[in-house]
């Protein structure tokens, strides 16, 4: 019961070879300098960029296998992504941002709202429920983005530089909060970071991507 990814990931002109495996219930940190392809790996797992060669399997189910012309659409992958730039929907309030994924997967409105309130409470953001993203601070937006992913109870949780847009105090708080939340989720969690301290504090495994040589 693991995630296995090996092959060539590509986004735009960029491509590189990777080999990553991850287990449920633990956080795997993907470390590397800027431009080493960390985010591209997450995009490939989420189904936003197709794998060029190789194989991606989760729980022995093939998600992406170019050789077999097999590719599972993003909505069938049970993934949830927290993007580096968060990407909250600017025209929706916090509650509708969080219920979005649940509603998209067919969960009824009342049940989705109840789960959204639980997720907001979990990340300590219950008071933000009716606010629009434009009226949130960096730390608040981060909490909402995390709640939006957690509420999905995903099989694979993908965190792209999850502390990139928070101040030092919030950073410390998140460093304590995240392992607790992930532990309860029992999901395969991959966290992209370039911060060694974050990786050591949160992740139980580390994968280091070497800098990509320019052609």
């Amino acid at each position: 019961m693991t995630l296995e990814l090996h092959g060539t990931v590509q986004r735009g002109e960029f491509h590189r070879e990777v080999r990553i495996s991850a287990q449920p219930g633990e956080v795997t940190a993907i470390l590397g300098v800027n431009g080493s392809g960390k985010s591209t790996v997450l995009h490939t797992i989420a189904g936003l960029s197709p794998l060029q060669t190789g194989l991606l399997t989760v729980d022995d189910v093939t998600w992406d296998a170019p050789a077999e012309s097999r590719w599972i659409t993003p909505e069938q992958r049970h993934c949830a992504v927290v993007f580096q730039d968060l990407r909250l929907f600017p025209h929706l309030d916090v509650l509708r941002n969080i219920t979005f994924g649940l509603r998209a997967s067919g969960i009824r409105r009342v049940a989705a709202i109840a789960r959204a309130h639980e997720a907001l409470a979990e990340v300590g953001a219950s008071a933000l429920v009716n606010r629009k993203p434009a009226n949130l601070s960096g730390g608040e937006r981060q909490r909402v983005a995390l709640a939006r992913a957690l509420v999905m109870k995903p099989r694979v949780l993908l965190l792209d530089e999850p502390f990139a847009s928070v101040d030092e105090d919030s950073h410390k708080a998140f460093r304590e909060l995240l392992p607790r939340i992930v532990e309860g989720l029992n999901a395969i969690t991959l966290m992209v970071t370039h911060d060694e301290t974050d990786a050591s504090a949160i992740a139980s495994r580390q994968v280091r991507l070497s800098p990509q040589e320019l052609p």
Partner: peptide, 16 residues
């Protein structure tokens, strides 16, 4: 495009 990707990243269909 990043908002569309965000929707996909939360399990949305293309129509969603």
């Amino acid at each position: 495009r990043d908002q569309i990707d965000a929707a996909y990243g939360l399990g949305s269909s293309k129509w969603g």
